[in-house]
């Protein structure tokens, strides 16, 4: 049979394809049947958080930082509760990473704050002596792309029914609604409101001035995202 296949390239190719496609079918399809359901307390990202997530991706933070706490005592001691599948329900793409040159960030919002991030992104070694992380000074100057974040929010709401503007149950029994503006101008305004809250806790005068002037520097968006990781 194999000799025959080797003389008939078409059937050879078909045979190879069947053999390699097999695994994908069995491994991947079952999990899709029960598509990622959010756990209670998981919210879709706000416009500013999503813009910050884009900053995170733009600079490949995931090249050095994981967002996946494995169920080991040593990991939960260091980073908090192990990760649950449903917590990633609104993560497109996932950002688990594959290497921990720096620590895990899945729950960094629980134990780091705006001012810590500000100091750290400006000069990591000043906050963590011995750190080998580079400084990200340009994030204090570049402006975050709010429009694209908003476009993505609209897209996922339409295509994947991500529940913006809907009441969502929280772990403590309360309800939370993540609002999505109707227009891009509305989205810019609401992102700016969020940014102002962050900027209050920051010290960099240029950043404060930019926010006061109606702009959102990348660092503000990034911190909003990092603070949302809980």
């Amino acid at each position: 049979m194999f000799h025959w296949l080797e003389k008939n390239p078409f059937f050879f190719a078909v045979a190879v394809f069947v053999v390699i496609a097999f695994a994908g079918l069995i491994e991947i399809l079952p999990n899709f049947a029960q598509a990622s359901r959010p756990v209670i307390g998981t919210k879709p990202y706000t416009t500013l958080e999503l813009a910050g997530r884009h900053v995170y991706i733009k600079n490949s933070c995931n090249a050095c930082h994981s967002q996946l706490i494995r169920p080991f005592k040593s990991e939960t001691d260091r980073y908090g509760h192990y990760s649950l599948s449903g917590e990633y329900a609104y993560d497109r793409p996932f950002l688990w990473g594959s290497k921990r040159t720096g620590p895990d960030l899945h729950r960094v919002g629980n134990y780091r704050t705006t001012d810590w991030h500000e100091n750290h992104m400006k000069d990591p070694a000043a906050v963590v002596p011995g750190s080998i992380m580079p400084a990200y000074t340009w994030m204090f100057k570049n402006t975050a792309d709010i429009d694209t974040a908003y476009a993505e929010q609209l897209t996922v709401m339409k295509a994947f029914a991500v529940p913006y503007n809907k009441e969502l149950p929280m772990a403590d029994g309360s309800k939370v609604t993540v609002a999505l503006a109707d227009t891009v101008e509305g989205a810019r305004a609401s992102a700016l409101e969020e940014a102002k809250v962050i900027a209050v806790d920051m010290k960099d005068q240029d950043v404060k001035d930019a926010v006061a002037a109606g702009q959102v520097p990348e660092i503000v968006a990034l911190i909003a995202y990092l603070n949302s990781l809980k």
Partner: peptide, 27 residues
């Protein structure tokens, strides 16, 4: 996202069809 949102934001940006754990699995 540019086309799905009716022309907002960066034209080259896209969003994955899969989310979270599924995305990781496919990736």
């Amino acid at each position: 996202t540019y086309f799905a949102s009716g022309g907002i934001g960066a034209w080259y940006h896209s969003v994955s069809m899969y989310s979270g754990t599924n995305d990781a699995l496919v990736q």
